[in-house]
């Protein structure tokens, strides 16, 4: 059996002649990898193809497609990145007509690092690697099992570490608004650290991520204070599944709940009075 790196290189080589570029990871100076646009003009770059650590490639794809709307591109995406691209497509951020998805299935160790429930792609026609089952998320379970005062104390302590770098917002593939609520002084106090409780920044962001978060955990990875940000989003995602039967990035033509007009059944599930 060939390993994933070799199969991925073969898959990229197969699509390379038909597209303007393939977005994947490349090892750079000092062994530090970054996303790179492989092109047919420079096939020798493929010798430096890398798999891990994952990078927020959906965002890079969006940046390139905004400048070149007619470009034919291919992108190597893991399960979470694929979901991110699908969600961006649903919110009219990019056009998928000219984009070829090459699915990269995660390995057990990678899925466990991300505590990922869905480490596999579902939309990509070309896939590389063996798809594995999701792994449980002990951190989310631990916080969900806490009592209410414990949870309050836990989050108060975590949010106190926040240095307001806005990294989680900036790196998030689903944060693409031109005007960000979090930069508005009306909602998020400026010039004060640690932030006052309750932390408006984190609560507003969690609310905005509802039904959009694709559980890629980029926010947690970039957080200099190591706040388990994805926990809130994952707990909310369970409720969205229950209320609207919606999972971010799972079904290509299902409307996100933000755009829904409620039907009789959806409304009853929300637990509101009639």
């Amino acid at each position: 059996m060939t390993d994933r790196l070799t199969s991925l290189r073969e898959a990229i080589e197969a699509v390379l002649p038909n597209v303007d570029g393939v977005l994947a990871l490349r090892i750079g100076p000092g062994g530090i990898s970054a996303s790179h646009l492989f092109s047919k003009e420079h096939p020798e770059d493929l010798a430096k193809l890398a798999l891990w650590p994952k990078e927020p490639v959906p965002d890079t794809l969006k940046i390139i497609l905004r400048a070149h709307p007619d470009a034919k591109l291919a992108i190597v995406c893991r399960g979470c990145e694929e979901r991110g691209i699908v969600e961006m497509f649903k919110h009219a951020q990019l056009n998928l007509d000219n984009v070829t998805l090459i699915g990269l299935q995660c390995e057990q160790a990678e899925a466990e690092f991300c505590r990922c429930a869905k480490p596999f792609t579902v939309h990509s026609k070309t896939t590389v690697g063996q798809s594995i089952k999701g792994v449980p998320d002990p951190v989310t379970e631990k916080i969900a099992a806490m009592s209410q005062p414990e949870r309050l104390a836990f989050w108060k302590q975590e949010f106190e570490h926040c240095i307001k770098c806005y990294g989680c917002r900036t790196i998030c593939p689903q944060c693409f608004c031109n005007v960000c609520t979090l930069e508005d002084e009306k909602w998020v106090e400026t010039g004060r650290l640690p932030m006052a409780n309750p932390s408006m920044y984190h609560l507003i962001r969690a609310m905005h991520m509802t039904a959009k978060c694709v559980a890629c955990r980029e926010c947690e990875e970039t957080c200099p204070a190591d706040i388990p940000l994805a926990v809130q989003f994952r707990l909310m995602a369970r409720d969205v599944k229950e209320l609207f039967n919606y999972e971010a990035g799972a079904v290509m033509d299902q409307k996100p709940p933000q755009l829904l007009v409620l039907e009789e059944g959806d409304y009853e599930r929300s637990g509101l009075p009639h």
Binding site: I143, A144, Q148, R151, L152, W155, P198, H202, L203, A206, M207, T210, Q232, L235, M236, D239, V240, L243, F244, P257, Q258, L260, L262, S270, G271, L272
Partner: peptide
């Protein structure tokens, strides 16, 4: 749509 979710978020926090 959003208020039941906000209630949940408050609970999780």
């Amino acid at each position: 749509k959003r208020m039941p979710l906000l209630k949940k978020l408050l609970e999780y926090t």
